[in-house]
Amino acid sequence: MKKILPIVSLLTVTTCFAQKEKALSDSAKFNKYLSGNTSSFIFNGQKPIGRGWEILEKQFADNQFVAWGEYHNSTLLSRLSAYALEAASKHGFKNWCVEVSPFVASELMRIAAGKNPYDSLLAVSKDHPTYGTFPFFKTGEDALMLAAAEKYKYTIWGIDQEFQMAFPYGINRVYNAQSPKIKQAYQAVRDSLLAKWWMPKVKLLDSLRNGIPQENYKRVLDDIKLSRTIYYEDNSLMRAALMKKNFYAYYDSAKSKNEKVFFKMGANHLAKGLNLMTHLYDIGNSVYELSQHNQTNFTNIYFILRYTTEDGKIIDDFESAESDYPKEFLKLYDKEKWVLVDLRPLRVRYNNDKTLTEDTYQIIDKYDFIVVSPEVKK
């Protein structure tokens, strides 16, 4: 019996030690890993400087697909993205995938090749300058991205639906490309389509489509028709399927299966696994699996924003009862710096003890990096 006691004592000590290890809360683990995997960079509109930017730039060297998941309509992020396009080009990136339709992507490439892209964007949006005609492309900073794309010889891939604000532009573009005879025959159809441009009648779209010879303009009308359905039904599944279809049309026509692609789209579309909002497998997951098939790499970066301005008042997302982003990351905000967290080492075994928010667990699983922007967005 005496010989057994030391063994029992050892087991007791080991068990107690293991229990102490298990008792470490998820938040304690998170903060421990966070402290060693956070860096930053400064960006004053010129070249980004700092360890955080060096890490972001290295992703272009290490991956076939790099995805920047943005918060939309940020002039500061557009300016930073222009530098990202330059950095990516040094590592063989020549394809830029954005959240517009294939037709709008071709229009953006035409505008980028012109003498003054910003003036062209202003001209395109002259009828509704507040929200623009092409989604996410309306400011001088957006024009800087287009200038960078032209300078570094990118092909712009537009994989999304046609957005409603571009419906009239597309309809007019199709109509104006026709012969005088066709224009005369279909002027009433065009006018009727524009009268209810936000939800044009399918019969009228089909009528114009059947009366024109050009396949590329038929596709424009097809996209408007499909997008109309997506809007009417609020059909996220149809939209996700369209993104994948359009992406693979570009990818399959590329010279090499190892073509590098830089994505700049809404962050939720670029998650690994299920989209956090729609709970569907979106384009980000498809490209992630494609990289596994190719035995290359995919990385996604989630950009988040703490402060916005509404009616002249600054809104702090950290103080919101239903914040858009996890408070665990918002607390890292620095008004002088962009704060970068490498999430990959944080994928340790958690107990789901609810000391972290559910969104935090999800983001750690679905994204490789998170960037907290210093911007106070208007």
Results as ranks from 00 to 15, higher is better:
324 D>W: 11
94 K>M: 00
173 R>Q: 02
140 G>T: 06
138 K>I: 09
23 A>C: 12
6 P>Y: 05
245 K>Q: 12
114 G>N: 02
206 D>Y: 10
369 F>C: 06
348 V>P: 01
157 W>Y: 15
82 A>D: 07
266 G>W: 05
75 T>D: 15
64 Q>W: 07
72 H>E: 05
206 D>C: 01
310 E>H: 13
49 I>C: 00
307 Y>M: 11
18 A>C: 11
163 F>W: 13
234 D>V: 10
248 Y>N: 06
215 E>P: 00
198 W>A: 09
277 M>L: 12
337 K>R: 15
206 D>L: 10
298 F>V: 07
101 S>D: 09
237 L>Q: 12
81 S>N: 15
297 N>S: 14
182 I>Y: 03
198 W>F: 11
123 A>W: 03
108 L>F: 06
291 S>I: 04
267 A>D: 01
21 E>K: 14
135 P>K: 14
198 W>H: 10
65 F>W: 03
125 S>Y: 01
233 E>H: 11
9 S>K: 08
192 S>C: 00
243 M>K: 08
216 N>C: 03
335 K>S: 15
253 S>M: 10
265 M>H: 10
139 T>S: 14
132 G>W: 06
132 G>L: 04
222 D>M: 12
307 Y>D: 07
103 F>C: 02
104 V>Y: 01
66 V>F: 02
69 G>S: 09
273 G>Y: 05
77 L>A: 06
63 N>I: 07
274 L>V: 08
41 F>D: 06
345 P>D: 06
149 A>P: 07
32 K>Q: 13
111 I>F: 04
278 T>K: 05
342 D>H: 10
109 M>R: 02
261 V>Q: 06
34 L>C: 01
96 W>R: 05
80 L>F: 07
99 E>W: 05
201 K>W: 00
76 L>Y: 08
15 T>S: 13
61 A>C: 01
192 S>Q: 12
257 K>P: 11
294 N>A: 10
344 R>T: 15
173 R>V: 02
342 D>E: 11
6 P>E: 02
122 L>Y: 00
138 K>A: 10
26 D>T: 04
271 A>G: 14
207 S>F: 00
158 G>S: 13
51 R>E: 14
296 T>Y: 08
364 I>A: 04
367 Y>E: 08
156 I>F: 08
194 L>M: 03
139 T>C: 01
253 S>P: 02
109 M>I: 03
